[in-house]
Design a protein around this nucleic acid. Structure first.
Length: 733
DNA sequence: CGAAAGGCTCTTTTT
DNA sequence: GAGCCTTTCG
């Protein structure tokens, strides 16, 4: 098979320029992934480079997996030897191997944001700082900012210029101390410590530099400074660095991604070639024009012209509604139309939003109308409390020094170890500069080392019991398969009863069973290896990684997570001032430009149909607010918009769509009325509602109606004082 | 010590 | 509206 045959001239150039650095600026839908995979295949098959000598870095694990799959098709078995992964997974891999050199135990655990915050609270407590005055999240973020710029606690000292930074400095130092006491690293450490390792140990770096003859980086516009440094280190010898990105799709500045990396690249690699990929293969001309209308308003931007040979396509549809619920209903009814009239299936449709909270109204409506959907993100699976609890047990078994995990589950389920006891353990651990687990062991067996007996015997006994529990599980972990180990944990801790007792316990238990079956995928491995591999995966996965393309269901996803995906039909909801653009960006022009890019990312996911939705009112929490339409909508040329949905309604439609709030206008007599699922009704007593289910009986209908105020009721159509309400209405007047 | 209740704050995006 | 923290009572 000819690797170059299916490429256009620009793509071909990007693939063939294998010597030296290259910057590929690739617009959306321009075949960027294709270029990367084909470049790798070209290197292996035509240039004779061993896959062992190639590294490709992606933004998500899912992207890495897909790339591996594609390369397996191109390269067969040779693909196995490629190094593919995210920056974080690559950092983790290197640190597991080489961490010893910087005093890092190879069984270190990785702390996610939740763990970090718990640790941060511990830090504040030990430093006698008030968490109300110094928000743990703000401190965490400040430390993350420092780490992303490769600033160590020592390096932070000279940069301190105000009192808050003074605090950050102290907190940062102590935070790192507690991390190391727990033999843990956080997400940012995976990158920073790797770079530090290479800085301090040139001979180790040298090995990796020699190995990686070719390095490719995807989504380069979203890399931060540490990531850039890491690439620079690794390519120090061969300088064959290929970066692919699109400044217009840079949407992660809040994760300290730095667009200046593109400038740095041109400075650090002056010999770099630059290739532009501007032909779009994904979208219709109309969609591309809409995207261009929106993004062109950014000032801090190099103009570029995307073009396509695709057809003009349908005008984009702008739909406004009265509430988030109405908005969701519009989405559902449009999706129904698409599936009936345009041969699209549910899986071809995606609904995108700015904040996860928006998914709720969508979900409820999708459930109500029986439209299948898959929700990406939201309360992420691995962040659910019950899941984190079970994982905490596993982490503790793997690394007993992990204080955050121990603190998490020492009294879950409740076993009589309260805050007082815990705090005593903590003082002991702090005094001896050791982990809580060590403290627990010493304190619960006081006679073995002659420690002063300062705890009441009953507590000592309880602690000893917990110690015995963990020891027993640890012993089991060497013999049992991973899923059996999970079973043992659930059994010995009484977690099952504990969780089933709770509100919504069934669902939580299901989640745990789901986790167990994921664990089961590691059952073939040797127990210790399985546990390590499983924890590594669990620490580094994101939800997008789990997106199942096969299921025929609509995708609900944030705009951020949608980057890199494409769908025949895309709905972007919440195009309102305050949502998209988010109000947090109002006072910062740079952030506002990022909001615009985010909108651009959403638009350019669409292949054939694009719907932009805006709601007149939205209740985001507590009271509802009226939001003006998003400024981004105003930038779209009117001739690209489907006329029936322009802002101004025609007189007839205004009349016919008048919403029936005071139930004066033409109530329809009920007995002649057959209601169907999704119809809006108004009840004399219960007020407005929506029909959720219809059960036809002999000559009647049994209805299940969800009322806005009164909740879900079952009613008989013939008896209930119901009126039908026209669904389409308009409030803009 | 633990469960339940009330009060508080904060709401962006994620490897 | 939720999640977290504190308070209160058993």
């Amino acid at each position: 098979m000819d690797i170059l045959a299916t490429l256009n001239p620009a793509q071909r150039k990007a693939v063939e320029a294998v010597k030296g650095p290259i910057l590929i600026l690739a617009g959306p839908g321009s075949g960027k992934t294709k270029v990367i995979t084909h470049r790798v295949a070209y290197l292996v098959k035509l240039c004779g480079v061993s896959p062992h000598n190639i590294m490709a870095v992606t933004f998500t694990n899912k992207a890495a997996r897909e790339m591996r799959e594609r390369l397996e098709q191109l390269l067969r078995q040779a693909a196995e030897a490629l190094s593919l992964g995210t920056f974080h997974s690559i950092g983790a891999r290197i640190l597991r191997r080489e961490g010893k050199a910087i005093g890092l135990d190879s069984s270190f655990v990785i702390y996610d944001e939740d763990d970090q915050l718990r640790l941060m609270k511990q830090v504040l407590e030990e430093l006698n700082l008030d968490p109300k005055q110094y928000a743990p999240r703000a401190l965490r973020s400040a430390i993350g900012a420092a780490k992303s710029r490769l600033i160590s606690p020592e390096g932070y000292a000279p940069r301190v210029s105000n009192y808050f930074e003074e605090i950050v400095h102290r907190v940062y130092q102590h935070y790192q101390q507690l991390l190391s006491r727990s033999r843990a690293v956080d997400f940012d450490d995976l990158l920073m410590k790797t770079v530090q390792l290479f800085q301090d140990h040139p001979q180790i770096l040298n090995r990796y530099q020699s190995r990686y003859v070719h390095i490719l980086v995807d989504e380069f516009q979203d890399t931060n400074i540490v990531q850039y440094m890491l690439m620079k280190q690794l390519t120090g010898k061969h300088r064959n660095l290929c970066v692919v990105g699109d400044p217009d799709q840079s949407i992660y500045s809040w994760r300290f991604a730095d667009l200046r990396n593109i400038l740095s690249f041109e400075k650090d690699y002056p010999e770099a070639k630059v290739v532009f990929l501007e032909q779009n293969y994904r979208s219709t001309k109309t969609i591309l024009k809409v995207a261009s209308d929106v993004i062109s308003a950014n000032i801090q931007r190099k103009p570029k012209e995307l073009w396509t040979e695709n057809e003009d396509g349908t005008p984009v549809t702008i739909i406004k509604s009265y509430s988030a619920e109405e908005e969701a209903q519009s989405v559902v009814s449009e999706i129904e139309k698409l599936t009936i009239h345009e041969q699209l299936s549910f899986k071809d449709c995606a609904v995108m939003y700015r904040v996860n909270a928006q998914s709720r109204a969508l979900e409820e409506t999708f459930l109500r109308y029986g439209v299948p959907y898959k929700l990406i993100g939201g309360t992420r699976f691995y962040q659910r409390r019950e899941i984190k609890d079970v994982i905490a047990y596993l982490k503790l078994i793997h690394n007993p020094h992990d204080n955050v995990s121990l603190t998490r589950i020492i009294n879950v389920p409740a076993r009589g170890i309260g805050p007082r006891t815990l705090s005593q353990l903590q003082s002991w651990a702090k005094a001896h500069d050791t982990s809580l687990f060590e403290a627990l062991k010493q304190v619960s067996h006081p006679y073995s080392v002659g420690t002063k007996q300062s705890l009441p015997p009953r507590i000592v006994q309880t602690l000893a019991g917990f110690d015995a529990l963990i020891s027993e599980l640890t012993a089991q972990s060497h013999k049992l398969s991973l899923s059996d180990l999970v079973n043992e944990i659930l059994k010995h801790t009484g977690y099952r009863e504990y969780i089933l007792d709770k509100e919504g316990g069934e669902e939580k238990w299901e989640n745990i069973m789901e986790l167990r079956s994921v664990a089961g995928e590691y059952d073939e491995l040797d127990p210790e290896e399985a546990l390590a591999a499983f924890l590594e995966k669990v620490s580094l996965v994101s939800d997008i990684d789990e997106l199942d393309e096969k299921a025929d269901a609509v995708t609900l996803i944030t705009l951020h997570q949608a980057k890199g995906l494409e769908f025949p039909a895309v709905f972007i909801v919440g195009l309102e001032e305050g949502i998209l653009p988010h109000r947090k960006s109002f006072d910062d022009p740079e952030q506002m430009e990022e909001e615009r890019r985010l909108c651009y990312v959403g638009i350019t996911r669409a292949k054939k149909r694009l719907y932009l939705l805006r709601s007149y009112r939205r209740s985001l929490f507590g009271g509802s607010t009226a939001n003006p339409p998003s400024r981004f909508l105003k930038d779209i040329s009117p001739n690209l918009i489907s006329p029936r949905d322009l802002w101004e309604e025609t007189p007839t439609s205004v009349a016919s769509r008048n919403f029936n709030l005071d139930s004066q206008s033409s109530p329809q007599p009920l007995n002649t009325l057959t209601l169907k699922v999704g119809d809006h009704v108004c009840h004399n007593k219960f007020g407005p509602g929506i029909v959720m289910n219809c059960n036809p009986t002999k000559d009647d209908q049994e209805l299940t109606v969800a009322f806005e105020q009164a909740g879900v009721k079952k009613l008989l159509a013939s008896l209930a004082p119901l009126e039908k309400i026209e669904k389409d209405f308009d409030f803009s007047a």
